[in-house]
Simulated assay, not measured.
Amino acid sequence: MSKSADDLPRLLSDAPAGIPTYATTEEILAHPRFAIARNHYMRVMIDSYKADTALRHMMHEIGRNVLFNIILGQDARKDADDPSTWPSVGSLRDVFMPFGLSSPRSFDDTLARMQIIGLIEIVPAPDDRRRRLVIPTEKMIQEDLIWLADHMSPLAVLFPERDDYLPALSHDRAHQSAQRIISTQNYGGAYEVMMPTDPIMAVLLRQDAMKIVFFYMLSADESGDRQRASLSYQSVAERTYTSRTHVRNLLTDPASHGHGDTAREGRPERRDRARALAAHRLFPGEIHGWP
């Protein structure tokens, strides 16, 4: 029987004993250092995967990011002495498909692409050669260490008095393994962030959308006029390695549904309040699941 999103585990409702207290979205938004941490997060996300063209193209879609994390989580929780617990193409498909981010064919294509660029190996299972095991490579593990540090760093900026983010920031592999095991118990929470009911939030989860909006938000903040940003579609397209048409469509789509001001190219324009507010709230939603 196929699973639905309702079957995904939620850590906040089923947290095991000993898990640190989580910072809620409301606590993060109300923190006096929120703006500093938010801008740090935006800069980190803009710069992610900049040096690796193949990886950048792989990770610019949200579904591929989710699958990347699922593979690492399922691998971390496997029993080394029990091959039946090792992640396979079939078991990963069962976990990933309830997110509704991909078709079965796209799922297979993404795994094939990950194998081509050296993130995973796909090999027959020793106990049943019909099963195809998915094994993260050292390259994937190293990229995950960077990913965890990037997502923990804004919390370290937000809560400088805490030192429990240091293992992630120092790329500690034992911490990585523990974090990935815990992540498998919160797929339901991740689904709620990935599948928002707000149409503006849904737009922000499109290909490279957050990076594009972050450029405009940072430009507005750094110009001293937080309501206006002057950036051409082409300049943002070049800096996010996408097309001018994609940037234009992304910025004008919410306005076409009555959710904000249309950005016009080549002159200072009002920053779309609805998009900016959604991105403002998406930041704590993205990181509040970290202890």
Rank of each mutant, 00 (worst) to 15 (best):
Q142F: 10
R132C: 04
P126F: 14
D144Q: 06
T85N: 04
T85E: 02
P98L: 14
H175T: 00
G90H: 15
G90A: 13
D127V: 07
Q179C: 06
I120H: 06
L119E: 04
A190W: 05
G189H: 09
D144E: 06
H151A: 05
S91N: 13
I182M: 15
G188Y: 05
M114R: 07
I70G: 02
D82I: 03
P104V: 10
L133P: 00
P104M: 08
H175L: 10
D144M: 03
H151Y: 11
Q142L: 02
I141C: 00
D150V: 10
V95N: 01
V89E: 12
R180Q: 10
D75E: 09
A190I: 14
D94T: 04
A178H: 08
A190F: 04
V95D: 03
Q179W: 11
D163Y: 15
T184F: 07
P83L: 00
L72M: 08
R130A: 06
M140K: 05
P136R: 15
G90N: 13
I71P: 00
H151Q: 07
V157Q: 10
P154G: 00
V89P: 00
V66H: 03
L169R: 04
P126V: 15
I120K: 06
L148E: 04
P160C: 04
S103Q: 10
Q179P: 00
P98V: 03
G189E: 10
P167Y: 09
F159I: 02
R131D: 13
L155G: 09
A168K: 07
A156L: 10
L166A: 12
S153G: 01
E143M: 06
D109F: 02
S84T: 01
D172A: 05
V157H: 06
L67I: 00
A112F: 06
P160V: 01
D109N: 08
Q142G: 15
T137D: 03
R131V: 14
R105Y: 03
A190G: 06
G90F: 15
G118R: 12
R173D: 05
V95M: 07
V134C: 04
V95R: 13
M152V: 07
G118D: 04
I116T: 14
W86T: 02
L111H: 01
H171Q: 13
A80W: 06
T85H: 02
P87K: 01
P83T: 03
M152C: 05
R173M: 13
D172N: 12
L145A: 10
P124R: 00
S88D: 03
F96G: 01
G90L: 15
Q74W: 10
L101W: 12
P126I: 14
V157P: 12
M152A: 14
R130W: 14
L166V: 00
D109M: 09
I182Q: 15
L155D: 07
Q176D: 07
P154M: 00
D172K: 06
S106H: 13
I146S: 07
D128G: 01
L155H: 09
T110W: 15
P154V: 00
Q179N: 07
S102Y: 11
F99V: 02
A112N: 08
E161W: 13
P124F: 00
R77I: 01
I71W: 03
D163T: 07
A112D: 09
Q185H: 13
R173Q: 12
A156F: 14
R180N: 06
N69V: 12
D108A: 11
S102D: 13
I141T: 15
